[in-house]
Computed example of a mutant assay.
Amino acid sequence: MTESFLPSLNGVTTSVCRVLDHLAARGHEAVVICPGPAPERYGQFRVRTVQGLTVRQFRVGLPTADLERILREEKPDVVHAASPFGLGWRGLAAARNLGIPTVAIYQTDMPSYLAQHAGPLAGRITNVSWRWIRHLHSLADITLAPSSATLCELGAHGVPRAALWSRGVDTELYSPALKQSDAVRALRACVAPNGETIVGYVGRLAHEKQVHRLAEIADLPGTALVVVGDGPTREKLEQLLPKAHFLGFRQGLPLAEAYAALDVFVHTGCNETFGQTLQEAMAAGLPVVAPAAGGPLDIVKPGVTGYLFDPNTPGTLRATVATLVDDAATCERMGARGRRKMEVRSWAGVVDELIGFYGAVVTPTYARPAA
């Protein structure tokens, strides 16, 4: 049960699809419940839709009684609620009514997202959001957080029965080997004709991603700035960063080629519960720079795979990136270490861990027969 699914593409959709891929490979059965419109099937699995509406370019499912009807018909062993908020809340409540075990995945920092759009009411909106999140996650048998920072935050706000479950990365698609391809060589020649160090960002172009921080490095000598992605703030960012190369939305191999064309990857958002693009960049063999906040704290090892900068001190992003510019040896060393770190984070292993959590709620320890 997911708040977001195809054709919408974002972090929630991507993680749900990867989980489904590996559930299929392990011989399990699944049904996807999501807002419509959506494809009728994903691979071998059926997709069932509920009524939805569009809010700020996102398709939002309505928490109707259809969810309980669908669960009665499907009779699942466990309900997986991906980033629950509205649709997921109703699904968790319906599952509890029917006695179906549940696993909730906390993936989106909704309080911070809502606060950024609330103006003078930001503080009140944040408090209300956390009360709601505490309530809806109390309906789940277990809540899985993607990083230790997020796990601590959930605990501080009273969310019960939480555990750590990280995310996987496709190390076959995102690979340093792509750097030698003709497409990547052509892209590098286009954006850095004079051999500049290519610094890039990949992700959605929206307020909560704080991409405006790239202005600090837009005129850094000896660099070319690349922005991959699309979203509601693209026009403003193009005005803010007139010399940057905006490559637009990419997925699959073109996205992997965009990563491979970079020399340094920069992550800008401070409210990330995880940071999947950091993992993809590291899998591509890149040194990474990210804020010392939230999910990146678990992913980036300072001085080893990249650097963390203080997001509250202006100029630190620029100073941090500057240490990597024209230092090819450090970039290569950090990129190689990041690649090795990602090689043990395959989606297959991560989903096997998730299946273990499914088993823990389907047959809890206190209900298992003694050995």
Rank of each mutant, 00 (worst) to 15 (best):
V191L: 05
E68M: 11
S181V: 11
D310W: 10
A122W: 02
G248R: 12
T363L: 11
Q57N: 11
T143K: 05
P35D: 06
T102G: 02
A348K: 13
Q251I: 11
Q210W: 01
E343R: 09
L262D: 00
A81D: 07
G61Q: 07
T171A: 03
L324A: 10
L9W: 14
R96K: 09
Y113G: 12
R345P: 12
I299A: 05
A189E: 13
K179Y: 01
A370L: 13
G27C: 13
S138T: 07
D141H: 00
T171Y: 00
V32Q: 02
L324R: 01
L255A: 03
A163C: 04
R59Y: 10
E343H: 10
E280R: 01
L67Y: 07
R337K: 15
T323N: 11
V350P: 04
S4K: 02
L136N: 07
R96I: 00
R337W: 14
G349L: 00
V228P: 00
V50E: 06
E257R: 09
R340D: 14
T320W: 08
G86F: 15
L173R: 07
R188W: 10
A370N: 06
V321L: 12
E196D: 12
L139I: 09
P302Y: 00
N10E: 06
T323M: 14
E172N: 05
A94W: 00
L92F: 08
N97Y: 02
V169Q: 04
D21Q: 06
H267M: 14
R56F: 14
R333A: 15
